[in-house]
Design a protein around this nucleic acid. Sequence first.
DNA 1: CGAATCTAGATGCGTGTGCAACTAATGTCT
DNA 2: AGACATTAGTTGCACACGCATCTAGATTCG
Lengths: 126, 126
Amino acid sequence: MEPEAALIDQWRSLLACYNEVACHLERALQESHGLSLSEFETLDRLTTQNCDKRRMQDLAEAMYLSQSALSRTVTRLVNADLIDRTHCVQDRRGVFVQLTDLGRTRHTEAKATHLAVLAQHLTPTP
Amino acid sequence: MEPEAALIDQWRSLLACYNEVACHLERALQESHGLSLSEFETLDRLTTQNCDKRRMQDLAEAMYLSQSALSRTVTRLVNADLIDRTHCVQDRRGVFVQLTDLGRTRHTEAKATHLAVLAQHLTPTP
DNA sequence: CGAATCTAGATGCGTGTGCAACTAATGTCT
DNA sequence: AGACATTAGTTGCACACGCATCTAGATTCG
């Protein structure tokens, strides 16, 4: 019976911690940069993946989003001129996604907010 | 520059861990008991709070849901006959929420699934 | 080669969410 | 008591999400 209680405690604190941080992140990013958390995370993934693989698949894998949600997130980012979406030549089903200059700038700005919120609301690990 | 990287690492793993567990929980609870995670969490809160305080406020406080989301979650649970919603007599704005017998049964069943998923997908703390 | 199968991504649909506005009841202050 | 402010909870609205489905392009195999 002991380990069950420990599990639940762990889950509860995970839940509390995640929601605290995610909620503040969402609001701060939206208010200061007009970005949702998913949109920011997408941009963020693109800054660290510089190779030219099929992006959508890779992104979906690296993120917590369903394929359809990612597809729509990308559409929003394209409409906001933050990323480009180009078809892959070898496999024309594939889609490349790439930051625009505007996207890179926006990401850099938002990154500061992101870090500030993390510093303020993420309790440091012992 | 060091602590920033640590913060981001911490956030990334929190994100990954939360989504892994939440996603599996959501699916398992829905499939086996017809409950969303929010609904289960609401029931769960009610089993541990046996006093007769104004429930909605207390629940909202104890949970990660907005007031409106909680209100609708409660409505769903009432419609499913899992909880009762009664007006408080002293303060007729207040609302009491209480498990029905069916609700208590359903919660007990679902709790087993909940624990199983946690045991399987929550990496134990060292 | 041509048909069946599979894969990458987009889209229709239903649903849960947060925000803001609303209703109803309580509290306050003169 | 009457006007104003505050509080508890609900509801209108827009939107992001997941699931299932669909389309288009690749692959496999007779």
